[in-house]
Structure formats: C-alpha cells, structure tokens
Computed example of a mutant assay.
Amino acid sequence: MGENRGAQRRRSRPTSHHLDVCDADSSELERHLAFRDYLRANPKAFLTYATLKKNLADKFRSDREGYANAKSPFIQKFCPICRGGSDFLAGMMPA
C-alpha cells in the first residue's frame, strides 16, 4: 500500500495521526523496518530525527505532503547506512 501514496483520500478537516499500512512482504515495509532499526541502534540519529520531525510538524502543521517531503533528505541520507549499501537508497527514491 505504501507504494500508492497518491491513492490516499484527501480530508477536508485536519487529522492528528497518520498510519502507513504495508503488505507483509513489501519492499516498503522492509525499508520502514530497516530505518526503524537503524534509529533504534543509533541514539544520536534518533534524537536528530526526532528534533527534525518536531520542527517540521510545527512548520507543516496542515501540509502532510510537505511534511513528508521535508523529511526525505534525512531519510535518504541514512538509508544506505541502515541497510549497508547504496542499493537501499535507490529503493527510497521516487520512480
């Protein structure tokens, strides 16, 4: 499901939470879990990412797409590290 971000329904009122749902065998889930594991193993990266998310949430309070796009450079920077190779970065790039 994560591969079909454009299929998300637009809401007319603000929401307080966002949930990604992925097929159990999807590459999208694999990327999410690898990034999660990287952040768990690297407290400095975790704190940096947490601070970034807080700042972006304030800046993009009513712009979910802008928020997601603004996080991308951080995620793209660290994804090759959390998978141990540049092939992971290629998987994170939009087609």
Results as ranks from 00 to 15, higher is better:
Tyr49His: 09
Ile75Trp: 14
Arg40Cys: 08
Gly2Trp: 05
Met93Asp: 00
Ala24Tyr: 09
Val21Trp: 08
Thr48Arg: 12
Phe46Val: 08
Pro73Phe: 02
Ala45Lys: 14
Glu3Ala: 13
Gly91Val: 04
Ser27Met: 00
Leu33Gly: 01
Asn69Lys: 11
Arg64Cys: 01
Asp20Asn: 08
Phe60Glu: 02
Lys71Ala: 07
Asp25Ser: 06
Ala45Arg: 12
Phe88Ala: 15
Cys22Ser: 00
Ile81Cys: 00
His18Ile: 10
Glu65Ala: 12
Leu47Gln: 15
Gly84Ile: 01
Tyr49Leu: 11
Ala41Asn: 00
Glu65Asp: 15
Thr48His: 14
Pro94Leu: 06
Leu56Trp: 02
Pro73Ala: 12
Gln76Arg: 14
Tyr38Phe: 15
Lys54Ala: 14
Ser12Lys: 11
Ala7Lys: 13
Thr15Glu: 15
Met1Ser: 13
Leu29Met: 11
Gln8Asp: 06
Ser62Ala: 12
Ser62Lys: 13
Cys82Phe: 01
Pro80Ile: 00
Phe88Gln: 10
Ala70Cys: 08
Pro94Phe: 07
Arg36Val: 04
Met1Phe: 09
Tyr67Pro: 04
Ala34Trp: 00
Cys82Ala: 10
Gly66Leu: 09
Tyr38Glu: 02
Phe35Asn: 01
Lys53Arg: 09
Ala41Met: 04
Ala57Val: 05
Gly6Ala: 14
Tyr67Met: 15
Gln8Trp: 07
Tyr38His: 13
Lys53Tyr: 10
Gln8Lys: 13
Phe46Arg: 04
Leu56Asp: 10
Arg31Asp: 01
Arg83Trp: 07
Tyr67His: 08
Tyr49Cys: 15
Leu47Met: 15
Asp37Thr: 05
His18Phe: 10
Ala34Tyr: 03
Thr15Met: 09
Thr48Pro: 05
Lys71Pro: 05
Cys22Asp: 01
Gly6Gln: 14
Ala41Val: 02
Lys59Met: 10
Asp23Phe: 04
Ala7Ile: 08
Arg31Gly: 02
Asn4Leu: 14
Ser26Asn: 00
Glu28Phe: 00
Cys79Ala: 11
Ala34Ile: 00
Asp87Gln: 15
Asp20Phe: 12
Ala50Ile: 02
Asn4Thr: 08
Ser86His: 03
Gly91Ile: 02
Ala70Gln: 13
Phe88Cys: 11
Asp58Leu: 01
Phe60Gln: 02
Pro14Ala: 06
Arg9Leu: 13
Thr48Asp: 15
Asn55Val: 02
Leu39Thr: 04
Phe78Trp: 08
Ala34Ser: 05
Met1Asp: 02
Asp87Phe: 10
